[in-house]
Structure formats: C-alpha cells, structure tokens
C-alpha cells in the first residue's frame, strides 16, 4: 500500500515562498492568479499488511514527524 501525503501550511501562516512564486507568475502576465501556497508531497510505500493497521501508522507518522501541528496540516490519500 502507498500513502500519498500532502503537508501544507495552515491558513493564516505567511508563506514567503508562495509569495515569491506569485510575483513570478504575475511577471509572466497571468493576472488572474490571486495567491500561491507551497506545500510538500510525500509518498510512503508500506510492506504488505492489514490496510487498517497501515492507515493508522501513516496517520501517526504524519502527526509525529512529517507535519508540525503548530504550523502545518496534512492530508493522506491511500493507494492499495
């Protein structure tokens, strides 16, 4: 099983990297773009196991290590 994880800054936390990219997009004359937020994409591949157990582990890995709850949220999508 694979866990496809998105980690991104909570709304309200300034994302200077996103801002810099927004400026570059505006420089390219795409004037319809209003905001850019940058996050991380992480893929975890598990050994064979019970999906329920593996999902629990993926959640734990995210909250312990991959995301810092003070500034980030995460979302997980699973691929069997």
């Amino acid at each position: 099983m694979k866990a496809k994880i998105k980690v991104y800054l909570k709304s309200g936390i300034l994302d200077p990297q996103g801002k810099a990219v927004l400026h570059a997009i505006n420089d390219l004359k795409y004037s319809d773009v209003n905001d850019v937020r940058i996050g991380k994409y992480i893929e975890i591949t598990f050994n064979d196991g019970k999906p329920e157990q593996l999902r629990k582990e993926a959640e734990e890995i995210c909250s312990k290590l991959l995301a810092n709850p003070v500034m980030e949220n995460f979302e997980i999508e699973y691929e069997e």
Binding site: I13, L14, P16, Q17, A20, N68, V70, M71
Partner: peptide
C-alpha cells in the same frame, strides 16, 4: 519550548 521557527519573511 512552544511555537515554531518559520522561514524568514524575506526568504
């Protein structure tokens, strides 16, 4: 310690 250190605002 509470809180977190984010990227400097000027990148």
């Amino acid at each position: 310690l509470p809180g977190v250190l984010l990227k400097n605002t000027n990148q």
